[in-house]
Design a binder for these strands. Structure first.
Length: 553
RNA sequence: GCCCCCGUAGCUCAGGGGAUAGAGCACAGGAUUCCUAAUCCUGGUGUCGCAGGUUCGAAUCCUGCCGGGGGCACCA
């Protein structure tokens, strides 16, 4: 609805500017807003004030000219009023509002989608945890945010690919191989001191035990290097399988799994380095190879090949991102933990070095999750082997509540995850409050259906939906498509959870005050179409969050 | 020392140039012969961390400071 009003306003203003009735200015993207309270209309614009401040004219005079022109859209606006210092307040006719119900009934699960993204190719890379341990709760937040963002971007018309980058080589994998092999040796009765930097977790012992089941004591006959290599292969594969399984259980899927090792196998690292060399963007210094990232706004140049001849992870990352650009993505979104924020400037530098605009790369930084269990903070550290896995949380509180909690705060805000609250099956817990609204509607529809009454948009007399409660619900439904576009533009999925709370609470209030099924058959039929529309939108929004919409609770 | 994020009601957090700053929870009282009471209604709070600045207008933008968290490797 907002976009319709905005289109009308835009046309009206441009006509007036062409005629010379009002001063000409460039119109921003956002010219229509929703006023802070209902008395001030359904929509409002401050455009007259903006024009006035730029041209030193009286804002209310300009507002008057625009308001007069807007008033000619009589089928849409009930009233166009000038208020305060120069706001133009727009009141939509009830008969026009109800049209949104027709849209919902026709589009069903597609309601809310748009072509805002114009099929722009966007890649969103997230989770990308090293296969050296199970996913923990921090990965879970990244997974929920990434997956939901991908769904939102798809819904708003982007051509989205979800990718997981597997660091399947390098130091961390070596440590995994050694750690598992040492535990294997213990199982074979050859206990050796466990190194400081080894992985301490119990899961390493589980892997060692599986390794022993697979190989028996055969690894004892291998050279140490070969045994570690075999352990690494075995453990890496097992861990990756486990990660895939955990993500699957969390309703998170990927379109592509990209292995770091493939960059080496396919010569992409070498190609990238020689490309950079041709461009004069790398140089030797102190026996290392440096990339001139400072030239592109980074605070200093970065090493890509160390003195000892081995490559840094940055070398892989630049080759990886060059590959992303070559695959044709116009918008590259990486979801990282906030502790990687220092890495952003050098990655942007790399993107620019490849000739792309730095704006096409966006690192979304996810802040920490602090877990609260019975009032006690639970600390997490992979190294110490003392962490709470995603799987444990999902097993305990369920997938729906877990995803909701991960998505209910802005990404750059620390998240306090209260396990006890997430487990509650009552009003204190927002996710159940929302799901309950959905189940309640299903229950009413079921009862109506037994009486032979079903929502029928073609025959319903929507003119009967005239009370403030009816229209209040309709207005929230009408805001849904705009909400999704704002989530996509700002990369802020948490807005959906606030929207759902608003919609669910409006429905519960409506339910307690009004009867859907009554003796008034026409009103009943009209309201059945209304609540079916509410159900549809709740279901659509929950789907974007990866949360189920139960019919019975 | 430098950089990034955060600081809004008792708690957890929305709002990120615009009109009287909001929600959930917590707390207290009330509502069910009737579509799910897992619900609803009624109660009230704020030096928007502090101080300057920009603006017709600042919780919002800029600068400085204070407090919390995180980063500043030829680690990943």
């Amino acid at each position: 609805m907002k976009s319709k009003v905005e289109a009308i306003l835009r046309n009206t203003i441009n006509d007036l500017i062409d005629k010379g009735d009002i001063p000409g200015i460039e119109l921003n993207d956002d010219i229509v807003e929703v006023p802070p309270n209902k008395d001030l209309g359904d929509f409002a614009t401050n455009i007259a004030m903006v024009m006035a401040s730029k041209t030193k004219k009286a804002p209310r005079e300009i507002a008057g000219i625009i308001a007069d022109a807007m008033s000619s859209y009589q089928e849409i606006f009930e009233e166009v009023a000038i208020a305060g210092p120069g706001f133009i307040n727009l009141y939509i006719k009830p008969a026009y509002w109800v049209n949104i119900l027709r849209d919902i009934h026709i589009q069903k699960e597609r309601f809310g989608t748009s072509n805002h993204g114009a099929k722009k190719k966007v890649q969103i890379e997230f989770v990308s945890a090293n296969p050296t341990g199970p996913l923990h709760i921090g990965h879970g937040r990244g997974a929920a945010v990434g997956d939901t963002l991908a769904r939102i971007l798809t819904a708003t018309g982007f051509d989205v690919q979800k990718e997981y980058y597997i660091n399947d080589i390098g130091n961390q994998m070596e440590i995994l191989g050694r750690s598992v092999f040492l535990r294997y040796l213990e199982l074979c009765g050859q206990k050796k001191p466990f190194p400081e930097d080894g992985y301490q977790g119990e899961y390493i012992k589980d892997l060692a035990s599986e390794l022993k089941q697979g190989y028996g004591e055969k690894l004892l006959t291998y050279s140490t290097d070969d045994a570690i290599e075999a352990s690494k292969e075995f453990a890496g594969k097992k861990m990756l399988d486990g990660i895939r399984h955990d993500l699957d259980m969390f309703d998170v899927s990927f379109d592509n799994w990209f292995r770091e090792s493939a960059l080496f196998k396919e010569g992409k690292i070498e190609n990238t380095l020689s490309w950079l060399k041709d461009k004069g963007l790398i140089y030797e210094h102190d026996g290392a190879l440096w990339f001139r990232t400072a030239k592109f706004g980074d605070e200093k140049d970065r090493v890509i090949r160390k003195q000892d001849g081995s490559l840094t992870y940055f070398a892989s990352d630049i080759a990886y991102h060059k590959d992303k650009l070559q695959r044709g993505f116009k918008w590259i979104i990486d979801i990282w933990g906030a502790d990687h924020h220092g890495y952003v400037p050098r990655m942007k530098a790399a993107i620019e070095a490849f000739g792309a605009n730095a704006d096409c790369f966006h690192a979304l930084l996810i802040q920490l999750v602090s877990l609260v269990r019975a009032g006690t903070p639970v600390s997490m550290s992979t190294r110490a082997g003392e962490f709470v896995t995603l799987r444990e949380i999902v097993d305990e509180v369920g997938k729906d509540a877990t995803r909701y909690f991960f998505l209910m705060r802005r990404c750059d805000s620390h998240l306090e995850f209260d396990i006890e609250l997430a487990k509650k099956r009552n009003e204190e817990n927002p996710v159940f409050y929302i799901q309950y609204a959905h189940a309640r509607i299903c229950s009413i529809l079921k009862k109506a259906s037994k009486e032979g009454l079903t929502p029928d948009i073609k025959n319903a007399d929507l003119g009967r939906l005239t009370t403030g409660d009816d229209l209040g619900l309709i207005k929230i439904l009408a805001a849904y498509p705009t909400l999704l576009i704002s989530c996509a533009s700002a990369l802020e999925p948490h807005r959906i959870s606030f929207y759902l709370m608003d919609l669910a609470s409006s429905f519960h209030r409506f339910y307690n005050k009004n009867r859907v099924i009554s003796d008034d058959k026409d009103l009943t039929l009209a309201r059945l179409t209304l609540i079916e529309a509410v159900r549809q939108v709740i279901s659509n929004a929950l789907w974007l969050m990866g949360i189920g919409a139960p019919e019975v609770m």
